[in-house]
Simulated assay, not measured.
Amino acid sequence: MSSSDIFIGETIGTAILILLGGGVVAAVVLKASKARNAGWLAITFGWGFAVLTAVYTSAPLSGAHLNPAVTLGIAIKDGEWGDVPTYWAGQLLGAMIGATLVWLAYYGQFQAHLTDKEIVGGPGAQATTAKAVEAQEKGAGPVLGVFSTGPEIRHAVQNLATEIIGTFVLVIAVLTQGLNDEGNGLGTLGALITALVVVGIGLSLGGPTGYAINPARDLGPRIVHALLPLPNKGGSDWSYAWVPVAGPLIGGAIAAGVYKLAFV
């Protein structure tokens, strides 16, 4: 596959991944959404379906890595590094496009949510405001969770370990499937399996950090959150942003090492 195919495929696929994944979070948490308070199951299955759709769409062009940690794991496994920058560039751009599309699709809900005094603070604010204020003191704005992840308990070592473990499960599953004819990415044959793996990770390991398990998925939308003209959006929590980047990359590298030791 050519560099242009890789870049286009990863951009389109990752944009779809974030549009549907970030979209289900927006649907569950934002005011005036018909799916508000649908809960964690809706979010985890929504992300799984997002992976399924993105993989089927982008696999013919790029092999559907959609995740720098997956790209890193495959590069370590195969010893081929030439296309890694192209994959990563497409993934980051796609994640930013997808996050922007979530904002456009839920524009009215964002405005309603971020002008509600119960959420962002103001006269008559109740317990919800106290929680929002506490989050903003830690650098996380009231809608940041639609764009990127954050921990329930801030403990750098635990948060990093959680992301490493979750990404290890994802990447070792990808590597051992040999998911397309060339064995180079998620591919269409393993799309459903990979989607179910992501759902399983979310249900089992998503509670502590929100399971980024993908540096582009977290960093690209976090950049978009920082740039978008959202009223009262609060901070983008850059002090935490390194964890969902470093953790997945470490997890992907460990998975590739285990694969080479155990399966080759």
Rank of each mutant, 00 (worst) to 15 (best):
W81M: 01
G63Y: 00
Q136C: 09
H113T: 05
G46T: 05
F49I: 06
A212N: 11
V120Y: 03
Y211T: 08
E80T: 10
V169R: 01
T44P: 06
P221T: 04
I165K: 10
L192Q: 03
W81A: 04
L192S: 06
E80V: 15
A38S: 12
W47H: 11
R217M: 04
I74V: 10
I201W: 00
L41G: 12
A173M: 00
A95F: 00
G178R: 04
G63P: 02
L17F: 06
A246I: 09
I119L: 11
A132N: 12
G22W: 01
D237C: 13
V197R: 14
L19F: 10
A26V: 08
A32W: 15
V199G: 11
L175F: 02
P215N: 09
W242R: 11
G13N: 13
Y56C: 10
A241L: 10
K131Y: 13
G200V: 07
G252K: 02
G13W: 06
I16H: 06
P151V: 08
A140Y: 07
L249T: 07
Y211V: 08
R36A: 11
G21V: 04
I201C: 03
L114D: 00
L20A: 07
T53Q: 01
A262Y: 06
G98Q: 06
G82C: 07
A161F: 10
T149Q: 02
G183L: 04
L66K: 00
A135E: 10
A50P: 01
V243K: 09
R154E: 13
P244W: 13
I18V: 09
P85K: 12
V102Q: 03
L189E: 05
I250G: 04
G63E: 01
V25W: 03
I223K: 12
E134C: 11
N184L: 13
V264N: 11
A59N: 02
R222W: 06
M96A: 09
A253W: 04
D116T: 00
G145S: 13
D116L: 02
L93V: 05
S204G: 14
V243W: 05
P60R: 05
I153K: 15
V157M: 14
D181G: 04
I6P: 05
V264Y: 14
F110A: 01
L66S: 00
I172C: 00
N37T: 12
G145E: 08
I74P: 05
N180L: 02
D5Y: 12
I6Y: 07
L192G: 05
A38Q: 13
K233V: 08
G190H: 02
E118W: 15
Y240T: 15
I193F: 08
P60H: 06
A127T: 09
G48E: 13
G178E: 09
L228Y: 08
Y106E: 14
T209D: 02
P151L: 06
Y240P: 13
P85I: 08
A27T: 10
A69C: 11
V70C: 08
T176Q: 02
L261I: 05
G82K: 13
A135W: 12
G13T: 10
A135T: 13
S58W: 03
Q126I: 14
Q158R: 14
A132W: 03
P208A: 10
L186K: 07
V133W: 13
D181M: 02
K77M: 14
A262E: 07
L61N: 01
S62Q: 11
